[in-house]
């Protein structure tokens, strides 16, 4: 793990000043992170089973990476903007999109905010500043830089954060993003999940340095460390010190229990390998979570997910006319004719 202070100093901006650093993470933050990550774990497992059963067409599973994703999203402040990739949908939930809203989007129902236009795991919320993921890997990175740049122009105290899998670091959009972020000192944070399942190690620090952007890495198995580091990067951006590239080393579990409701779902792999179990152990050690509290939390999350999936699966599909909505702000004549044809 390289510290952001070191990386920041190397980038020549004098490091992160004490007043710019976000408050230390406390037990309350740890408990909140565990709840967000456990929800993501249970929901991703449920969605995986629904996909295998053909009940949803697609799911971008994040099992094993949800602690890192949730911690990253938690590091943003109220009013900051979140640009997830499709596998970081769990971050959108952390930013305030309800599980029920996520489920309606995944099933593309009549009450889906995006009207069934998008594949599962692409939720959107203007109010929460969650920009819907693109189907194109890396395309959102340069947009996050543009939005950050706009915030700086407007003199708003707003930071943007984009997440991506390390494979996206091979795209032209990644290089455009880091280049423009470096040139214009955009207040943004680009967070890479460096999954061992992903592409060959990308040496992002070298690339960031080439563009004059700070870079730091952190063990994605340590949720509180991710939260601390990304908060520092957000504070650094907010302080006008420019963009930071954060590498979070993660590992995705692809071998799941036979039932999504199995208790071992919350402690996968070898002892100490599961970031979620690791966080729970740390909280138990500190007295922030006990067995009864954990049981109650998991029961509550399972009920929330059950209700959300049942409501979404039982909901009507969007009316045909909705296909023609939002192509343009107003329906032009040719689309009005096609909408009538499709509905007849």
């Amino acid at each position: 793990m390289s510290s952001l202070a070191t990386a920041s100093a190397e980038a020549g901006d004098g490091g992160v000043g004490g007043k710019d650093v976000a408050p230390q993470t406390g037990l309350a933050a740890g408990r909140a992170l565990y709840a967000h990550a456990a929800r993501a774990r249970l929901l991703s497992a449920r969605m995986t089973f629904l996909q295998h059963a053909g009940r949803v067409a697609f799911h971008a599973a994040c099992i094993g990476e949800e602690v890192a994703i949730a911690a990253t999203a938690m590091a943003l402040r109220e009013g900051d903007w979140f640009f997830p990739g499709h596998r970081e949908w769990a971050g959108a939930l952390v930013r305030g999109i309800p599980t029920a809203t996520y489920a309606h989007q995944a099933f593309g129902t009549a009450v889906d905010v995006v009207k069934g236009h998008g594949a599962p795991d692409h939720p959107a919320s203007r109010a929460r500043h969650v920009v819907p993921a693109s189907g194109l890997i890396g395309a959102h990175l340069v947009q996050a830089v543009g939005a950050a740049w706009a915030a700086r122009m407007r003199k708003d105290d707003v930071v943007t954060l984009a997440m991506f899998g390390t494979a996206a670091a091979a795209t032209g959009d990644f290089h455009n993003a880091v280049n423009f972020a470096g040139v214009f000192k955009a207040p943004c944070v680009l967070v890479s999940r460096a999954s061992r399942l992903g592409a060959k190690k990308a040496d992002l620090a070298d690339r960031a340095a080439a563009y004059g952007v700070a870079c730091a890495s952190v063990d994605g198995g340590d949720g509180l460390a991710v939260l601390t580091l990304v908060r520092e990067a957000v504070a650094r951006a907010a302080a006008g010190k420019g963009a930071t590239l954060v590498e979070v080393a993660t590992e995705r579990f692809t071998s799941l229990p036979d039932e999504w409701s199995a208790p071992e779902l919350l402690s996968l792999g070898a002892a100490g390998a599961d970031p979620l179990a690791r966080l729970r152990a740390a909280l138990e050690r500190d007295g922030a979570l006990d067995a009864a509290g954990h049981e109650a939390l998991v029961a509550e999350l399972r009920a929330e997910i059950d209700a959300a999936v049942a409501a979404a699966e039982g909901a009507a599909r969007p009316p045909i006319a909705s296909m023609f909505e939002d192509v343009y702000a107003e329906l032009p004549a040719h689309l009005r004719a096609q909408a009538e044809e499709a509905s007849s």
Partner: peptide, 19 residues
Amino acid sequence: PLSEGGILGTAIGMALYGL
């Protein structure tokens, strides 16, 4: 910088933000 993908991509981000 000389990059149409960068120009248009950042412009989209600016437009999302409200510029």
